[in-house]
């Protein structure tokens, strides 16, 4: 049986709101960085941009938003398709593995992102 114990906020409404708030933050970040890249950058201006504290905060905010957004999204996908109903008894095990794996990847992304942003 699929339960809500691995959902983002243990509440559908919480997840629904998180999904949308994080989506707006990611969209703003993608449009901003996309605009910067499209207008043409060299190393100096690119490095200068990512040396600004506000840009690092904006980037980390976008990365954390991506984490929450992806967790809610993948949770929806996994709990719809990797289930006992769809796959039999192995479904629940597969779903747990998939969620554990995506959690590890997500954590890696965040730590890696912090390293990149603060030049560690």
């Amino acid at each position: 049986m699929v339960t809500a114990i691995t959902s983002m906020g243990r509440s559908g409404l919480h997840d629904w709101l998180m999904q949308r708030v994080s989506a707006v933050i990611i969209l703003a970040y993608v449009l901003y960085v996309g605009g910067v890249v499209a207008s043409g950058v060299d190393y100096a201006s690119w490095k200068a941009l990512y040396s600004q504290t506000w840009m690092r905060i904006f980037s980390l905010l976008a990365l954390l938003s991506f984490g929450a957004h992806a967790w809610v999204g993948l949770w929806s996908v996994f709990t719809d398709y990797l289930t006992e109903r769809m796959l039999g008894a192995v479904g629940d095990k597969l779903r747990f593995l998939a969620q554990a794996l995506s959690a590890v990847i997500m954590f890696t992304y965040i730590v890696w992102g912090i390293q990149i942003l603060w030049g560690l």
Partner: peptide
């Protein structure tokens, strides 16, 4: 949904 899953992997390339 499919593009969402692809993007989750694509972030590795972007990072």
């Amino acid at each position: 949904r499919i593009t969402g899953v692809i993007l989750f992997a694509a972030v590795a390339v972007l990072l």
